[in-house]
Simulated scan of single mutants.
Amino acid sequence: MNTLTINASARDQAGSASSGRLRAEGRVPAVVYGKSKEPANLSVDAREFRMLLRAIGNNTPVVQLKADDADAVTAIIKEVQRHAIKDTYTHIDFQQVGAEELVVVDIPAHPVGESWGVKNENGTIETVAHTVSVRCLPKDIPTSIDADVTELKVGDSLHISQLPALEGVQYMDHPEQPVFAVVK
């Protein structure tokens, strides 16, 4: 797993007025919470956060969160709120996870290869489930689930039970749930 780091600063004040001042300064209000941690109010640089999201792309949003002088902690970006018109970030939720704590996360699923049905039968690969729910330790969180679709013909689908087995990762979705299908 490729983990990226983002710097944060503690903030004393909460509420819409102080959040508005932060946004005017180019910062985004945030909160970090976890099972064994009291929620803490933070702020992150909006430009740095935008670059972080670009680097993450369509992969699992696991980051190292470094707040002020404290050690970096592993966190998952749980929610990002955006302004509807200005296309700016208004708030971020981080969930801190412990090294030995099992977490359930949604991992993006990507088809790999060109299916037989697409190549020979003029079919189209359809993504039925864009993400797959897994349970694992933070160190075992995969960046994405890459599924080989080369054997699929028109009318075939690839199910959760057919996804590659990854060490330390347990699929939480129903085994018969389709992930990819080839349709005409």
Results as ranks from 00 to 15, higher is better:
Ala17Ser: 14
Cys136Ser: 06
Val31Ser: 05
Arg47Ser: 15
Arg27Phe: 09
Gly168Gln: 09
Pro29Val: 02
Thr150Leu: 06
Thr74Gln: 03
Arg47Phe: 10
Ile125His: 05
Glu100Met: 06
Val128Glu: 10
Asp156Ile: 01
Val80Ala: 03
Gly123Pro: 11
Gly34Met: 08
Thr150Ser: 15
Val179Cys: 04
Leu163Gln: 01
Ala72Arg: 04
His130Gln: 13
Arg54Trp: 10
Glu126His: 13
Val104Gln: 13
Leu163Gly: 01
Val112Asn: 09
Glu38Ala: 11
Pro61Leu: 05
Leu166Trp: 10
Lys35His: 14
Arg82Ala: 12
Asp173Ser: 02
Val105Pro: 01
Val80Asp: 01
Ala75Val: 03
Thr124Val: 12
Glu100Ile: 00
Arg82Ile: 09
Leu152Thr: 05
Lys139Val: 05
Val128Leu: 10
Lys139Thr: 03
Arg27Ser: 07
Asp93Glu: 08
Ala46Lys: 04
Asp93Thr: 02
Lys37Arg: 14
Ala72Ser: 15
Asn2Phe: 13
Val97Met: 07
Val134Asp: 00
Asp69Glu: 15
Val118Ile: 03
Asn2Thr: 15
Val44Glu: 04
Ile56Met: 09
Glu176Arg: 10
Ser9Glu: 11
Glu121Trp: 09
Cys136Asp: 09
Gly98Asp: 15
Ser9Cys: 03
Val112Gly: 04
Gly57Phe: 13
Phe180Ser: 00
Asp156Trp: 00
Ala8Val: 04
Ala24Val: 04
Glu121Val: 05
Thr5Pro: 12
Val63Arg: 03
Ser18Tyr: 03
Lys78Cys: 00
Ala55Glu: 15
Pro142Tyr: 00
Val105Ala: 10
Lys184Gly: 11
Ser16Asp: 14
Ile160Glu: 01
Ile125Val: 12
His110Thr: 11
Asn59Asp: 14
Val112Tyr: 15
Gly98Lys: 10
Ile107Gln: 02
Gly98Cys: 08
Glu167Ser: 11
Ile6Gly: 01
His159Arg: 10
Val112Trp: 15
Glu114Ile: 12
Val97Cys: 09
Gln81Cys: 05
Pro108Gly: 05
Leu102Ser: 09
Lys86Asn: 13
Arg27Cys: 04
Gln96Ser: 00
Phe94Ile: 03
Ile141Glu: 00
Thr60Ala: 14
Trp116Asn: 07
Glu101Thr: 03
Pro164Asp: 08
Gln81Met: 10
Leu102Gly: 01
Val112Asp: 12
Thr150Trp: 12
Val118Tyr: 02
Ser19Ile: 09
Val179Asn: 02
Ala165Ser: 15
Ala75Pro: 12
Pro108Ile: 06
Gln177Lys: 10
Asp148Ala: 00
Ser43Met: 04
Asp45Leu: 03
Thr88Arg: 11
Asp45Arg: 07
Lys78Ile: 01
Val44Tyr: 03
Ser43Asp: 12
Glu126Ala: 11
Thr143His: 04
Ala147Glu: 02
Thr127Ile: 13
Val112Ser: 11
Cys136Ala: 06
Ala84Lys: 08
Asp148Trp: 07
Ala181His: 06
Pro108Thr: 07
Ser144Tyr: 07
Ile77Leu: 05
Asp173Arg: 02
Asp173Gln: 06
Gly168Val: 07
Ser43Glu: 13
Ala129Trp: 09
His159Glu: 12
Val118Lys: 02
Gly34Asp: 09
Asn2Cys: 11
Leu163Lys: 01
Val179His: 03
Ala40Glu: 15
Asn7Gln: 12
Glu114Val: 12
Ala67Val: 15
Asp146Trp: 02
Val154Asp: 06
Glu126Trp: 07
Val103Ala: 04
Thr124Pro: 06
Trp116Thr: 08
Val179Ala: 02
Thr150Lys: 12
